[in-house]
Design a protein around this nucleic acid. Structure first.
Lengths: 142, 142
DNA sequence: TATTGTTATACTCTATAACTATA
DNA sequence: TATAGTTATAGAGTATAACAATA
């Protein structure tokens, strides 16, 4: 007595996909002098400036201690601003700079060029639905 | 001069999704007395028996040393068979047992029940396309 | 005393290398 | 000598805990 046929569970399908997309991104990011975490920070700060490092860490689901070396580097590269809040000098105000936005846009464009080639394995209909579903599920995150 | 609006890159969308689906699986697996790696091994051996542990490790993209404690545990639980090949006693023949298949099916069913509730956020059309695309992209793995 | 950011420590997971047994 | 499996060691990445500055 065997069970009915089952589809693979989502995590089992997502894991190799993430591994592959992340592996494809890495060399592109490296060409632009960015790490995965650095890129992640730039994307987040491009969406909106942040008033504390803790808030930024939470936004990208990282530990607050983990992003500190990343912020040090991005600041040294001139890609972010990070200055004490005059009203509360414990707090660091974080924002992306002009050149930070430029390098982030360049990297993002290059990454998506690769991904588009990859997504072309799908029919246009499935491709659109896939991206739409992905975005919906990601946004629905609690 | 800013770039045109861009969609998030795939890895950035896949990462939180994987994290969430994996986190949802964990307690279910625990209820069935399985670890993530143990479950992964059972799914692989359910698809097909393996002649060596190295082949199994490669099939689930794991290091051959990493799965040994997992195999020890599964064997002790009676979920897999693992006996030396009489023709080459260096080799271990691996197969899932009846009870191994039963626990794997039970866990998989429970996991998918949770995922279906989760996927119901999508329209039926998008849901089907999403799963189809996911499977296509996963299969296309080199 | 509570909070932000930082540094130092410990822990988990994984891979590398050394070892045993078979061939 | 080469290979499958195992064990022991070391490394990377991460989180936890202690610390300094400010409120």
């Amino acid at each position: 007595m065997t069970s009915p046929p089952q589809r693979p569970d989502l995590a089992a399908m997502l894991a190799p996909l993430l591994r592959e997309t992340a592996a494809a991104e890495l060399p592109v990011l490296e060409e632009h002098g960015l790490t995965m975490w650095g890129y992640s920070v730039l994307v987040a700060l491009d969406r909106s400036s942040m008033r504390t490092q803790a808030a930024l860490a939470e936004a990208i689901r990282a530990d607050k201690t983990r992003i500190i070396p990343t912020l040090d580097e991005l600041q040294a590269q001139g890609y972010i601003e990070r200055r004490p809040d005059p009203d509360d000098r414990r707090v660091r105000l974080l924002a992306i700079t002009e050149s930070g936005r430029a390098v982030k846009d360049a990297a993002q464009t290059a990454i998506q060029r690769g991904e588009d080639r990859w997504l072309s394995k799908l029919s246009p209909t499935d491709r659109d639905a896939f991206l739409r579903a992905l975005q919906q599920l990601t946004d629905a995150q609690p």
